[in-house]
């Protein structure tokens, strides 16, 4: 049975836009991190994420079949066309908030990429195989930092708890499903997002316990990013930075 190309495209945009938007956010730290080692680490993480984006959006552009490239998708779409979860477009905040967001994303990313290596779509499987190795490295580092800062000084603990309280209501969107997910699951291309939740809770729970941090109460979940229904105001502001050059000088190249 043929895969619905529109739904496959939607799935690929969700994967690629997550890494693109987070990659850009993390790159905003370049030259500003508290110490040189962290600056380099953040820049390298951003680089991995942008690299993964090139694979996801490159494949998305092929599936779309309109002669566009990964760069066209990154630089020439407007906010409402983006399919990333809201979590990754939120502003960096302080260093602790950036690393908490990174951890909450890395934990999900490492789990889903692992599952995607068994995708029935060989392109998806090979991109995931490459990205999974990087995600495993990322989650190791972001876990360590969350533990170090959470179980650190009174000030760092307070800030990490505040970051978690602010970010956690954005986590639920990673596990929502719609018709796109149903089609991907049925075709064996991607797992049902909800099926990742138990592993995610176990991983996040273990790290937060070590970090002496508490999950906030309340089940409210912000959403609308991965379906494109509604992004936060932050995405548009980010795109004015990220897309400025291609908008001002269309087609500019190295």
């Amino acid at each position: 049975m043929a895969v619905d190309q529109g739904k496959l495209l939607e799935f690929l945009l969700r994967m690629g836009d997550n890494t693109l938007v987070l990659g850009h956010r993390v790159s905003e730290w370049c030259g500003h991190a508290p110490v040189l080692e962290e600056d380099i680490a953040l820049a390298n993480t951003a680089l991995d994420l942008i690299g993964q984006t090139q694979f996801w959006l490159g494949y998305a552009a092929e599936v779309q079949g309109e002669g566009r490239t990964a760069d066209d998708l990154a630089f020439l779409r407007d906010a409402w066309d983006f399919r990333n979860v809201l979590l990754v477009e939120l502003p960096n905040g302080d260093f602790g908030q950036t690393l908490m967001r990174q951890f909450l994303f890395d934990a999900w990313s490492s789990i889903i990429l692992d599952r995607l290596t068994a995708s029935s779509d060989p392109r998806v499987a090979e991109i995931a195989g490459k990205a999974a190795k990087e995600a495993a490295y990322h989650v190791e580092r972001s876990s360590d930092t969350v533990i170090g800062l959470g179980d650190g000084t009174e000030e760092s603990h307070k800030r990490m708890q505040a970051a978690l309280d602010y970010l956690y209501p954005y986590v639920g969107e990673l596990f929502e499903s719609d018709a796109v997910d149903a089609a991907m699951t049925e075709e064996g291309i991607a797992p049902d997002p909800a099926s990742l939740r138990a592993d995610y809770n176990a991983l996040v729970g273990k790290v937060l316990a070590e970090a002496t941090l508490r999950l906030p109460e309340g089940a409210y979940s912000h959403n609308g990013g991965r379906t494109g229904r509604m992004h936060t105001e932050h995405l548009g502001h980010m795109l004015t930075q990220m897309q400025w050059l291609q908008r001002a000088y269309p087609g500019a190249a190295w």
């Binding site: 380099i40 680490a41 993480t45």
Partner: peptide, 13 residues
Amino acid sequence: KLSQFGSTPCKAQ
């Protein structure tokens, strides 16, 4: 270990 990342993506410090 000083840092999990280094001067290029393939290195740590």
